[in-house]
Nucleic acid binder design. Sequence first.
DNA 1: ACCTTACATGTCACAACTGACAGGTCAAGC
DNA 2: GCTTGACCTGTCAGTTGTGACATGTAAGGT
Lengths: 174, 174
Amino acid sequence: MSLRYAVLGLLARRPSTGYELTQTFDRSLRTSWHARHSQIYPELAKLEAADLAEVVGRGARRSKTYAITAAGRAELRRWLVEAQPDRSQRSESGLRLFLTPLLDPADRQAAYERDLAHVEQELAALERVLAGMRGAAEPEVFAPQVELGIRVDTVMRDWLREQIQASSAGTGRD
Amino acid sequence: MSLRYAVLGLLARRPSTGYELTQTFDRSLRTSWHARHSQIYPELAKLEAADLAEVVGRGARRSKTYAITAAGRAELRRWLVEAQPDRSQRSESGLRLFLTPLLDPADRQAAYERDLAHVEQELAALERVLAGMRGAAEPEVFAPQVELGIRVDTVMRDWLREQIQASSAGTGRD
DNA sequence: ACCTTACATGTCACAACTGACAGGTCAAGC
DNA sequence: GCTTGACCTGTCAGTTGTGACATGTAAGGT
């Protein structure tokens, strides 16, 4: 049921088209809940049928703008405060990181370097997002969430650098 | 295909029964790849059919102990070093955390406090795991992974404490 | 002897998710 | 006028994952 609330949550921020939601899933939500357009469009239809969202406008190229309804907001709030969280996760990168010690030193080194490159990129992107928020007119309520992402990625980056260094000290000219 | 490699990875550490794997998924892998026994048993059968794993022993209560084969190790290595990582994730708690700013201050406070309690518990559990590893006879290659978990959870804990404090300063007696 | 709990493996109907297919619209550059 | 690329919405067959059902075994307490 998470997809339903992910969509509802994005609609609670602002009315959007399915296309816009797809992009937001790709850009902001990829690290917490991933979804494709082939899931998003049917979900919007279901949300509309359940009166949790409604079409509030039609634009160019047959686009439909959906907004959350009062019932939708109530349902979202109910889920956020009442439903017991499912703490289980699915992260292929996390799995890889967990299994990396099984590799021999050279492969391991390469794997960690690949991850480091990715995390540095991610970190730079988040810094840009935060900078954009600071420059905005209205205060951005999601700024702390971005800050958390930056802190987590920083810990990751430092840890990866340590692993790479420790590994090269053990296999290199030393 | 991640489940296949998760199972293969656990078997690479040591031969195990399906039951033991199920427990490991619950205890160690729950934060990177979650799976139930109803997926694990069929996957073991598929792995055996593909000669990536084999039954090396039968114990009490009809239990079967599986071990990874040479082909299985090769396939696991190939996946870890050659396959391009899928960085997308699915984490209900992450989604909740992302959407929490949508709640009014009182609900938000409660949500953060619930998460803080959980993360503190998690942190204590990881500390115990690390302490156990330090006391072990053979050096534990997965210790850095546990250390990373501790660092990430520490960042989470501190961030949650800040949010709770900032929130109570804004709504409380202040 | 009986009961409870942990051990242990499996199946299946159903729901969630993916990747590919399919079709159409508008703006900008050449 | 034409082509390219971004915009925009949908469907569907096949795979992955869930929750419940089903079945039985061994150990420990009373």
